[in-house]
Design a protein around this nucleic acid. Structure first.
Lengths: 269, 269
DNA sequence: AGCCATTCGGGTACCATGTACGCAAACAGA
DNA sequence: TCTGTTTGCGTACATGGTACCCGAATGGCT
């Protein structure tokens, strides 16, 4: 069979050791993925080309296609390998807040170690086993707390959104400077600096200007900034959890068009 | 001067009508950007190549470089053109909740009209004037409510994160199907379907499976799902706003390591 | 041992892309 | 009309993914 049915990479397991005839594979999916991750870490995902990976492995570009159908699939493998670095307990501890906080910090650490991760992760939907494991852990942290599955999914989605966005904000400008080939100092001073200065001096965006100017003086460390925002997100989740805990009915699956949770307080402005 | 100093596109205004010698420009930045947006809307951003844009304008690829320094800059222009479609009141109404809700829904509408928007927007940091206008409006909605500028920025960032993430979830799979060239039905059934089925049947991810299975039965419309999550985010912001309103000291800029807001309730699990 | 089916390695090649370079055409003022 | 300036754009190059093909390696069978 010359070409496989087009299907997800996760349905095409690596050809394992068999006992039939034919030449033995000289490489492995994992080895290729590891090299790709290493290159992306060092020089960005745009340097992670098939030729480059193959070259560093001492082979030709086309050899990689014996192990990976397309380059995009290799990206999926890279994502999942990095998600596999994230260590988590076997199950939720019972303290949902610290569980979610743990996931958030571990994902942030991975995103900082591998600055390409978030871009790939948000660039296209992917569902590798390690990503699913991390996701399942986060879902589990909110399980059995009176939330229906849609709310649990929604809250975990909110958390993911924040974590990804925060990581992007943390590394965004640095990555962009690297990507365009300037050193960050020059990029900031000559490329974006003059425009930002003009924006501030125009007076058209006073609040944005304030956020720029004051963040320069009150620069709290990135980790604490992340934690600060994370606390806000968890607070938002927590409000609904406590109220739902006081609510007797827990598996309120389908009650028509009614709200799936107890009457909740809404801030009146 | 053959080549300009590398600087932000926003610092290189379009060559306007002058009265000197030389041939008149036959095109315009806006015209080029509009065509690029149109192609991206119809066939995705990967079809938006310089040759293609130029071809549809009836000219050669290199002509575009008289108006745009690099392709990435054209992306910035596309983003800002679309942000310019977003109509907003001149200033905040005083009802922060409906103001933020308005921005969120307008951005969502733009993101659905132009399915490439979020990918470009989160792909690299950009600060076009229309984006700044929208951002400033959101900041303004939370101004003068006892929050310091860092919290305001943080909350608006949270909101952006949710909005972008929600839009991505809404169009993510459809876009991926289109991008890979299959019709969505086939993509779902033959490509990702078997894997998802295997994941569910493996039993290793029970909560993820539940979120998949029950979302099939209780499929609430995307707009309401978006609103639902948005309410959660706004609830989370609202908690801090009401508390900070009851708090006398408002400009608590630097008090060492203390929290910048009043003691806030923390849900105990 | 010799043959064969099968699988891997990877060279060559094709096509698409961004974009540097250079020159001819268009234009206003002298 | 001549001249300097600016635009239009054809040509060309480097880089990328990847289809195709064939020789090399390998183990089982006769």
């Amino acid at each position: 069979m010359p070409d496989e049915e087009p299907t997800s990479i996760w349905m095409l397991p690596e050809r394992q050791e068999r006992s039939g005839p034919g030449r033995r594979p000289g490489y492995s999916r994992e080895q290729i993925t590891r090299k790709a991750v290493q290159i992306a870490d060092a020089e960005g995902v745009e340097a992670t080309t098939m030729r480059r990976i193959a070259g560093e492995l001492g082979t030709g570009a086309m050899s990689l296609y014996r192990y990976v159908p397309k380059r995009d699939d290799l990206f999926d493998l890279m994502i999942d390998m990095v998600m596999g670095e994230i260590e988590l307990p076997g199950g939720p501890s019972g303290d949902w807040r610290s569980d979610l906080s743990l996931v958030a910090h571990r994902v942030r650490a991975a995103g900082l170690r591998h600055p390409w991760l978030i871009a790939l992760l948000t660039g296209r939907p992917t569902l590798g086993p390690h990503l699913l494991r991390v996701h399942e852990f986060a879902l589990g942290a909110l399980d059995r707390r009176g939330l229906d599955i849609d709310d649990i999914t929604g809250f975990v989605g909110m958390l993911d959104d924040y974590v990804h966005g925060a990581i992007r904000r943390e590394i965004g400008w640095l990555e962009e400077a690297r990507r365009t080939g300037m050193d960050p100092e020059r990029w900031k001073r000559d490329y974006i600096g003059p425009y930002v200065r003009q924006v501030v001096e125009s007076g058209a965006y006073p609040l944005f200007s304030r956020s720029l100017l004051e963040s320069r003086t009150a620069h709290l460390p990135p980790a604490e900034r992340f934690q600060h925002g994370l606390d806000r997100v968890l607070d938002g989740i927590g409000v609904h959890i406590t109220h739902d805990l006081a609510c007797p009915g827990h598996s309120a699956g389908k009650d028509g068009g009614a709200k799936p949770s107890c009457p909740k307080p809404r801030a009146t402005p």
